[in-house]
């Protein structure tokens, strides 16, 4: 399986100056040394609690915010070095679906115009041909072509999300970055939108980077998954293995905190102590050690190395328990 997207050592720090008259520099380490690879047609999940930097990864990959360091290779080509026409070309290959369907569409632009504009900008189609394609895309996401004439405020959240997906498909991308695509929707609508994305994935052979905090969604949708904590990936591997038999204590707590449909298998809810620390002032050593039930003295001093999990293609973990 060839890699569609390779991310190596991605880093993004947000620097702000606070205070008067002596401003103090506050550095929020939103993303620290994140690396992963997404294969062709693969759905890669990125999971973690709020504020762990998963959305920042999604945006930094697309250079919607410029990453500070690291490499983003799209089919072996350096996306971060691209400019002008080359960058525009890359934009066709990777698209994003946003979390909030209410702000992701221009309120003063008709759906038809919103779908035809990217085609015109990229010289894919114009006029009647663009219109035909836009109508076909709407049908593909389960909306009638009559929706072309309408405006975003006439649609529900789920319908808007479908339109957002259709817009991402206008430029025929190979990879879709879905940033919490269903977390703003009702549960019943979530299932429909997820189903739609899974169908599109099969029909079009799309690769996905699926950012979510919902393990059950990740389990259902993704082939591989990476668990993020405080800007770092702490465990990565096949979704089945990571979610059933996590190696990292944090991943285990996440798994146990997610509800299981089978009451017989339900165990006592584990306690996770404290809040996620501020990324502006991360703890030394392993970022998880202040909350880790299995913390050892070494955890508070040394950042754990990346350890390959036993077995072929089982991913890896950053934890002293396995180091």
């Amino acid at each position: 399986m060839s890699a569609v997207l390779q991310v190596e050592g991605l880093r993004k720090h947000f620097v702000t100056k606070k205070g008067f008259p002596k401003p103090k520099t506050v550095t929020v380490r939103a993303v620290e040394d994140v690396s992963f690879t997404i294969g062709e047609g693969e759905a890669f999940g990125l999971v973690g609690e709020s504020g762990c930097g998963k959305s920042t990864v999604a945006r930094a990959l697309l250079r919607l915010i410029e990453p500070d360091a690291g490499r983003v290779l799209y089919r072996g080509e350096d996306f971060r070095a691209a400019n002008g026409a080359a960058l525009k070309n890359f934009r066709r290959r990777m698209q994003i679906v946003f979390q909030d369907p209410y702000s992701s569409l221009d309120p003063r632009q008709s759906i038809g115009s919103a779908l035809m504009e990217p085609m015109r900008v990229h010289g894919i189609a114009e006029g009647a041909e663009a219109r035909r394609r836009a109508g076909a895309l709407l049908e593909e996401v389960g909306l009638p072509p009559a929706a072309l004439e309408r405006f975003p405020h006439e649609f529900s959240g789920g319908q808007r999300q479908r339109i957002g997906i259709a817009r991402a498909l206008t430029v025929e991308p190979e990879l879709i970055i879905a940033d919490e695509p269903v977390s703003a929707l009702d549960v019943s609508v979530q299932a429909q939108v997820l189903l739609l994305m899974k169908e599109l994935r099969q029909r079009r052979g799309l690769a996905f980077l699926f950012v979510s905090h919902d393990l059950s969604v990740i389990r259902w949708f993704c082939d591989r998954v990476a668990v993020m904590y405080l800007g770092r990936i702490v465990e990565e591997g096949p979704a089945g293995r990571v979610l059933a038999d996590p190696m990292h204590p944090y991943a285990r707590i996440l798994r146990d905190a997610s509800p299981l449909p089978d009451p017989a298998r339900r165990a006592e809810l584990p306690r996770i102590i404290g809040e996620i620390p501020s990324a502006a002032n991360p703890p030394p050593g392993c970022p998880f050690h202040p909350r880790c039930p299995q913390a050892m003295p070494v955890c508070s001093t040394t950042l754990p190395r990346w350890t390959i999990a036993p077995g072929e293609g089982q991913g890896g973990v950053a934890c002293h328990l396995h180091g």
Partner: peptide
């Protein structure tokens, strides 16, 4: 296409479109 639209857009199609802002 097995996905169905999640709420009655059909009804919206019968009613005149709401006026622009």
């Amino acid at each position: 296409m097995s996905a169905v639209s999640d709420d009655p857009l059909v009804a919206a199609e019968v009613a005149p479109p709401p006026p622009s802002p």
